[in-house]
Simulated assay, not measured.
Amino acid sequence: MKVHKKLDRKHLLRKAITIPIGALLSAIGLEIFLVPNHILDGGITGISIILAYVTHFPLGVFIGVLNLPFIIIGYKQIGKTFAFSTLYAIICLSIFTSIFIPIPQITTDPLLASVFGGVILGIGVGIVIRNGGSQDGTEILSILLNKKTPFSVGEIVMFVNVFILGSAGFVFDWNSTMYSLLAYFIAFKTIDITIEGLEQSKAVWIISDVHEEIGDALNNRLGRGVTYLNGQGAYSHDKKQVIFTIVTRLEEAKLKSIVEDIDPNAFLAVGDIHDVKGGNFKKRDIH
C-alpha cells in the first residue's frame, strides 16, 4: 500500500512539474512566434487568437474561457483525472501567454515563425499529452462526437482545424492561412515525435526456411531476443516458423542487412509500435 502511495505521489509530482513546462513552451511558440506574425494554431487556441486580435483582449482570457465548457464535459464523460490535468494545463497556458505579451517578437519572417513556432508549440503540447492532459477542448469534443458519428477522432479534429485555419484568410490575409497550415502541420508532427520519442520501436516478423540461423544472428549480432511463432500458409498449408522481435528505429537497417545476408528470399514485415513494456527489452547503442 505504501509503495502505491509513493508511486502516486511521484506521478503527481511529475505532472505538477512537467505540465507547466509544456504550457510554457506552448506559450512561447504562440506569443513570441505565431501570434505576432498573424499565424493561427488549430482548435480553441486558433479561435482565441482570432478573438484576441479582433477585440484586443489578452489571448489567455479566451483560451481559459472557451475551453472551460469542454473541460466540464470532459469531466463528466471522460474522467476527472483527465479533466483536472487539462484544467491545470489550460490555466498554466493562460497565465504564460499573458506574461509573454510585453515581450517583443524574435522574427518578422513568417516562414521562420511558422517553423520555429510550430516546433516549440508541438513540443509543449506533446509534453502535456504525455502527462495525461490536453490544451484544447476540440480534442474532447472530437472524442465525444466520434461515439455518435462515423468519423474518427482524427478526421473530426482535421475538419475543425481546416475550417479554423482557413478563416485566417478572412481575418488577416491568405498568406496567413498558408503559413498557419504549415505551422499546424509542423506542430502536429512534432507532437507525435514528443509523445512517441525519437527512437520509436519497431515490431518485426520474419518468415524463412533458415529461421534458427536468422534468430541466432539477431541474438548474437544485434543483441535482441527473438520468439518463434508457429505459422501455417493458408494456401499451401505448409508449416512455418515465424520469427518475432522488437528493435528500435535505429536498429532497423542493421536487422534488414542481417536477414538479407542470411536469406535474401526471407519474408520480412516491419511495423511501428508506440509503447513497449515488460520483458527484457531495452534501448541499446548501435555498434
Rank of each mutant, 00 (worst) to 15 (best):
S201N: 08
F188A: 03
I206D: 07
D238G: 14
K239G: 08
H211A: 15
T177E: 06
S180I: 00
I243M: 09
F281Q: 14
D275S: 09
E199N: 15
D275I: 02
D261W: 00
V210W: 02
G197L: 02
I186T: 02
I258Y: 02
R224M: 03
S201W: 00
L255C: 05
I258C: 11
I214D: 04
S180P: 10
D209F: 11
V242L: 12
G215S: 07
I195C: 06
L255K: 06
S180Y: 03
N220A: 09
T245E: 13
L218R: 12
D261Q: 11
D272T: 13
E212I: 05
F281E: 09
H274K: 04
A269H: 12
I246F: 14
Q200N: 12
V270P: 15
F172N: 00
V210T: 08
A234F: 01
A183P: 08
T190W: 08
I258F: 02
R249Y: 03
S257L: 03
K240Y: 06
L181C: 04
R249S: 12
K239N: 15
I273Q: 10
T248I: 04
A269L: 14
K189Y: 04
S208G: 11
R221N: 12
L229P: 14
T194A: 15
Q241H: 06
K202C: 12
E199L: 12
N280A: 09
E196Y: 11
A266L: 12
A266R: 02
G233W: 01
E252V: 03
G233R: 01
A234L: 01
K254Q: 13
N220W: 06
K189I: 10
K256S: 06
N280H: 07
N220S: 12
K240C: 06
S257M: 03
N175V: 00
I246M: 14
